[in-house]
Nucleic acid binder design. Sequence first.
DNA 1: CCAATAAGTAACCAACCAGTTATTTACATG
DNA 2: CATGTAAATAACTGGTTGGTTACTTATTGG
Lengths: 214, 214
Amino acid sequence: MPDTHPIARKLDGRADATRRRILEAALAEFAEKGLAGARVDEIAARADANKRMIYAYYGSKEDLWLSVLEQAYTAKRDREHALDVQALPPRDAMAKLVSFNLRYTAAHPEFVALLNDENLNRAAHLKRSEEVQALYTPLLDTLRAVLARGEAEGAFRRGVDPMQLYITLVGIGHFYVANSHTLSTIFGSGLTTKKALAAREAHCVDVVLGYLRP
Amino acid sequence: MPDTHPIARKLDGRADATRRRILEAALAEFAEKGLAGARVDEIAARADANKRMIYAYYGSKEDLWLSVLEQAYTAKRDREHALDVQALPPRDAMAKLVSFNLRYTAAHPEFVALLNDENLNRAAHLKRSEEVQALYTPLLDTLRAVLARGEAEGAFRRGVDPMQLYITLVGIGHFYVANSHTLSTIFGSGLTTKKALAAREAHCVDVVLGYLRP
DNA sequence: CCAATAAGTAACCAACCAGTTATTTACATG
DNA sequence: CATGTAAATAACTGGTTGGTTACTTATTGG
């Protein structure tokens, strides 16, 4: 039924807008302060919504956290899915995967913050998520395919475990973004400038491609 | 004055023991729940001490957090300082640095948790730490020396940025430990078994040495 | 044994905070 | 314009939590 009742449409539209504002505000608040540090009142204020609506739409603070987390996963999954590297030679394809990951991570520190805090909570919320799909990561499949192709063509070394490489590939970007503040106390601030990010991107590509040489 | 008043000694001894119990309890509580999620009452209970003593000895929850953080840094720094790799050939030395880092990280997930939470707080506490020494990391100096030696001997590729390599080396261990719970939802649990850690260690060494080949 | 001081305790408090209740407002339709 | 319903609001509540106050216990030199 694409043509639902106009009344429902209109009301849904307003309600949906509120839902979306709450979700966006929650993302910002949770990413900034973590689950325990975030304040429901503050989320309501940021969303310019009444606190009651948060409970009406999302049930509880923890349920809201899970919704935010699932949405963040979905957003990244969508971007990963849009990656098309199968036409590229293995080394170019791999370079693109590494670059994509670093750029996405740097552009979405909220995702990094959410992930860290969810791990602090032993992934308790994700584990009870019904959207198991949220955990599926297209990047892993793509990586596996590129790796297999590169091995077959002799472009990559043999015997590389896709899981290990995936964790390494994601980790070298994630750690840089997640710990930029403490790293800044060691190396001086300026790790998040365009120039510094470009240098990090080049290094990450170098590391992965350098390692994969036969 | 090695022989201070016995009265002071005895009392200091009892006081120091309480201080230490509080610090240990705080480390456990903070690592488990983060700064915002940790409860001062719970720390007092874990330490089998009165809450008042926490404030007498450490001033406030945030000051206690900083003390815990500094102690964790100091502990790691001490272990890094005990590393002696200058007598080893560059590749062996580098392998030892990578192995050390992964093992230390895996053995001290509390340090990882503290670091993540401190970064969530934009390193606000470390930045106002008077023990600037806490930020100094011997591993970086050692890495720099090994890298220079390996380059000079032709064992490593040229032009590697020590900072980038340091971040990569630490990151590939840190991310694995910090995100083991969400990674487990993807790859199935069992990432922290002895076997899995040995596999990760081997991979990390392979990546760094593979990358550094000339 | 007694004074002096350090260490430790129990009870308390005010601010905070997740979650609720009672009520009002907005809006499409008959 | 009256009416039913979805959306939104203000005010409140009970438990929690960082921090404090007033008081007790332990230790030892004189």
